[in-house]
């Protein structure tokens, strides 16, 4: 059982990008807040804090998750991957090569989600891609270049970290 008192902040450990980090959090702090304010990992963005936009997406246990919809204290025993942990993902390069980036604010969330998609489903069809990527809002591109990036990746078979 892990118990944290109501008002005081607590020292917890978060397992992020293969490293264990100390963080001092309130029980009410979401993972998003802890990553940004305690670990300085600001790639996950505060787009809505309501699970609607996907800008804060990270991987928890390899699965895409809105980091605004988990408490930091809730995920202390689970591996977390943020955009900062995906520096060599072929997804990033595909987004650059396919012009899928404009303002860049939604980009980390999209890349994290796409990374999980193509590693979990290297044979994803359009229906599955749509199901997954509808979790993220991009207000600049109109999604076409993002679609092209994902299709290019899947077609190239380059779906694992090299």
């Amino acid at each position: 059982m892990n118990s944290l008192s109501k008002t005081s902040k607590q020292l917890i450990q978060l397992h992020v990008n293969g490293e264990t980090h100390d963080a001092v959090v309130r029980s009410a702090d979401t993972l998003l807040i802890a990553l940004r304010e305690q670990l300085g990992l600001t790639g996950a963005k505060r787009g809505c804090e309501n699970g609607d936009c996907g800008a804060c997406s990270v991987l928890i246990n390899g699965k895409p998750s809105h980091s605004c919809l988990s408490l930091a204290v809730e995920v202390i025993d689970q591996p977390i991957t943020t955009i900062e942990g995906l520096m060599d993902s072929p997804v990033s390069k595909a987004f650059v090569d396919n012009w899928a980036i404009q303002c860049g604010y939604c980009t980390p969330g999209f890349i994290v989600n796409c990374h999980s998609l193509i590693t979990t489903h290297p044979d994803a069809n359009d229906e599955l891609i749509e199901e997954w990527l509808q979790s993220n809002i991009c207000r600049c591109t109109g999604y076409e270049e993002i679609r092209e990036a994902v299709h290019t990746l899947l077609a190239s078979g380059q779906t694992e970290n090299e």
Partner: peptide
């Protein structure tokens, strides 16, 4: 700005 943006 694309490469930098792709890394978060």
């Amino acid at each position: 700005d694309a490469v930098e943006k792709s890394t978060g």
